[in-house]
């Protein structure tokens, strides 16, 4: 009895294995998939991928190899992904922001044709806070607009995320933003705020969290309040919902021309992975907004961001004198 049951289940298993290829998705995927991360190992993007990928592997049934390809502010890796073979065995993160910066702010031809990118799915979005020194004169964002001088932001560089956020905020709310650039990371920029090199900073909790005695956040650049700082208002609450597109969207993509049925297989795996309890727990821990979004929503965001960036072009020209 027992043996026959064993035999039966073995048969069923065998049938399941042999029948698999006849399933609707043919035999894709049947070999490891490469995942290109356009940033170095250990950074924010990379960590997200390293948490997400095992969940995707579980649903796809094949290994996914992570390849870090950093350089040029995320451009190099995204371009490599763009140029890879569109057979469904190469996917990665496509970071749209630097290309939007090239197109709308730097006035440089982007290294890839953004519209052609095969968007798979957006899993999450890393957003920033605006913070000030505790002993400084600014107690709310409103105070920025009342100041009779420009608000000085220590940040990494012109065209980088901190500069974009502060410029966009100033443009929308009506205050002048000035910059002390050249800090290596947003964490060193946060130290600069704590030390008094400038008035205000832009960064995530892991950037300014070491200075909780010296700095305090004024606003979260998101739509929902961040769990670590439930008393800090969101930029949407303050009446600027368009600014929630700032920050780093984690968009999974594949090279242009990847067959739609294969994209759908990957998309389904991403959908499930983004809803995995462990992934959600990681989002809570690291203050990353988990935001499962279908391609349509991603394209809308890209367009919104592009529009916002175009309005920053005059500020960029001004900063170059």
């Amino acid at each position: 009895m027992r043996r026959s049951r064993l035999l039966l289940s073995a048969l069923a298993l065998g049938a399941a294995i042999t029948l698999q290829p006849q399933a609707s998705f043919a035999d894709y995927p049947d070999k490891p998939i490469s995942f290109i991360v356009p940033f170095g190992a250990g950074g924010g993007f990379d960590q997200m991928v390293r948490v997400l990928v095992p969940k995707m592997e579980k649903h796809l049934g094949v290994a996914i190899a992570i390849k870090n390809n950093p350089g040029a502010g995320g451009r190099r890796g995204s371009i490599l992904l763009y140029k890879s073979k569109p057979d469904g065995y190469t996917m990665g993160l496509n970071y749209f922001v630097p290309f939007l910066v090239d197109k709308h702010i730097l006035g440089k031809k982007p290294g890839l044709d953004m519209e052609k990118v095969s968007v798979i799915y957006k899993t999450s979005h890393s957003r920033h806070f605006v913070f000030v020194a505790k002993n400084g004169p600014y107690k709310s964002l409103k105070d920025f607009t009342k100041a009779d001088k420009s608000i000085k932001f220590p940040t990494t560089g012109i065209g980088a995320s901190g500069w974009i956020a502060a410029s966009a905020l100033g443009a929308e709310m009506g205050f002048d933003s000035a910059f002390v650039t050249g800090y290596k990371t947003l964490s060193t920029a946060a130290l600069a705020v704590a030390r008094g090199d400038g008035d205000a900073g832009v960064g995530a909790i892991h950037h300014f969290g070491g200075f909780t005695n010296e700095v305090q956040p004024l606003v979260y650049l998101g739509a929902k309040r961040e769990a670590h700082y439930p008393d800090v208002p969101t930029i949407a609450e303050l009446g600027y919902p368009q600014l929630t597109a700032l920050g780093a969207a984690h968009v999974l993509a594949a090279p242009p021309g990847t067959p739609e049925d294969r994209l759908e297989v990957l998309r389904e795996a991403a959908r499930k992975a983004a809803r995995d309890p462990e992934f959600i727990a990681w989002g809570k821990e690291t203050a990353t907004d988990i935001e499962p979004t279908e391609p349509k929503g991603v394209w809308e965001e890209v367009e919104e961001t592009g529009k916002m960036f175009s309005s920053l072009k005059p500020l960029f020209e001004k900063s170059k004198n």
Binding site: G157, I158, G159, T181, K320
Partner: peptide
């Protein structure tokens, strides 16, 4: 290289 301090 790209001078990100001044965007040039």
């Amino acid at each position: 290289g790209f001078s990100d301090m001044f965007g040039a």
